[in-house]
Design a protein around this nucleic acid. Structure first.
Lengths: 195, 195
DNA sequence: GTCTATACACTGATAGAC
DNA sequence: GTCTATCAGTGTATAGAC
């Protein structure tokens, strides 16, 4: 749709990166300006509602990137279990490096803004919901019972969110690799045995 | 040790609450002062290193509260599975209310400071490690194979961290309740079947 | 659409009286 | 140990020239 809007894209790209690494409150407009090379006037021309508006679009951008990569990792697989394991191990690799910029989650923004910026909270909630739906659909396609697939999707979503947080804290993807190792236990049966 | 240090305790208590709800960058010294009723001079007398020092102690305080409650919920149980379920459901209840102050996780502080405040990052890492160790010990006591118990502990830790984040975002403990429901699947066997 | 200068509230922190 | 006044710096945002 938007043909070429280089300045706007540059701002969003820079902002996404900074928000993910430093959070919403830890990232200033001035820093976004400096690192993107955009003058302040241009920023407020493209985003009249300032920081909050930038954050909303940044969340959407990150969400779409994550969903896209998840689809690539999971949709073509014929063995879901090892596909999920591979997916998680792929993410783990990003967390071994000092500066995690390639793959992040929206949990930080979500936690920061949940009680103060309702619109941002809603953006994050939508992102979680869409990720969850993608997982559930894939599991159902592979024969998991509908309700159990739903529960597993919620679980995997939470597992990834938590394990990325801990991997970030430890500066190592090992926590994620343990999670990958547990996946078979979780996906062993296609229903929850009437529980 | 410290007999009565009411001012100091008041600052820490207020700071813990604010840090958990608004994060490190979202909480200002001035707000801590206002809400605790402590003058700025006193704060810097008790915490010469300012905000960072307060945060380190606040993390320790929160960690100890969480560990204590976890022990109460899990140690006396003879059925680990339902004890974990009950534990998680207890936490879930806190997340149904608008203002979550009673039970929080340290993931927010951890994510915010991982790349900028090394000492805070280390405090959070320790907190994660201790929680994990507690889970592992309990599982081993109940007959789970050592390595598998370790993996399950990491998993449950990540699950709780992620599910609390999502519950906070959704302003509902339901995500945590789904996790509680999945626990039996996770704890069904006491080893990982040679995987 | 781009850019600079500036407004002005608020930040963490300190000095020094009490 | 407690409190107030104040600092220098940074925060978001705006006005208005180009």
């Amino acid at each position: 749709m938007k043909s070429k809007n280089n300045t706007r894209d540059m701002i969003l790209e820079t902002a996404s990166r900074l928000f993910q690494r430093q959070g919403y409150n830890g990232t200033g407009i001035n820093q976004i300006i400096e690192e993107s090379g955009t003058p302040k006037g241009s920023l407020y021309y493209h985003f009249p509602n300032g920081k909050e508006e930038i954050a909303i679009e940044a969340i959407q951008l990150v969400k779409e990137k994550i969903l896209e990569q998840t689809k690539i990792d999971l949709l073509s697989a014929n063995d879901v279990t090892s596909a999920f394991q591979q997916h998680i191990n792929n993410i783990a690799d990003f967390y071994d490096t000092e500066d995690v910029t390639e793959w992040l989650k929206i949990g930080l923004l979500a936690s920061e803004t949940a009680s103060s910026h309702e619109t941002l909270r809603l953006s994050c909630e939508t992102a979680f919901t869409e990720g969850q739906k993608l997982y559930a659909d894939i599991l159902k396609e592979h024969g998991y019972e509908k309700n159990f697939a739903q529960e597993l999707a919620v679980t995997i979503n939470a597992l990834l969110e938590g394990a990325t947080t801990i991997s970030l804290t430890r500066k190592s993807g090992d926590t994620l690799r343990v999670i990958a190792n547990i996946i078979p236990t979780l996906l062993e049966n296609k229903n929850n045995g009437g529980k």
